[in-house]
Amino acid sequence: MKLKLANYWKKIAGIILLLAITFLVINKIYNFNIAKSTLASFGKISFTLAGLLFIMSKEKVEDEYIMNIRLQSFSFCFLLGIIAYMIDESGLLNFLGGENPRDMFRYILIEMFTYILFFYAMLYRIIKFEK
């Protein structure tokens, strides 16, 4: 992936994530009749944007090994997305919420979380074993 942002974008992504969580929590607590869908959508978009910026920003030292595990993480989350779709068809993922049975936001959540978890697990398992 050639298109990568500087490391400080991770901090910006963190701020956007906090805003997204705030929007989603406010939407859950106060049941706004008119603004509900707008606020929820804004929360979801901010959440997705935060995840996207986090994923696209570089590590402090971005080298070939990092690129390698980045690729592995992308492959893994892509496959998991397909599996999630198949499981979703059976209705097992309904606990994740969403108005529509096959809400795209669920897949984005699953793929982003899988990517981030897989990537950092691969990156830090080595340091853990080293100590």
């Binding site: 590590e59 030292v61 390698n68």
Partner: peptide
């Protein structure tokens, strides 16, 4: 060699073969 410490550890542990 301008890489991360993780890269050196992974090469030493033979998890990763460098380019």
């Amino acid at each position: 060699v301008f890489v991360s410490r993780q890269t050196i550890i992974s090469i030493e542990k033979e998890y990763y073969v460098p380019t």
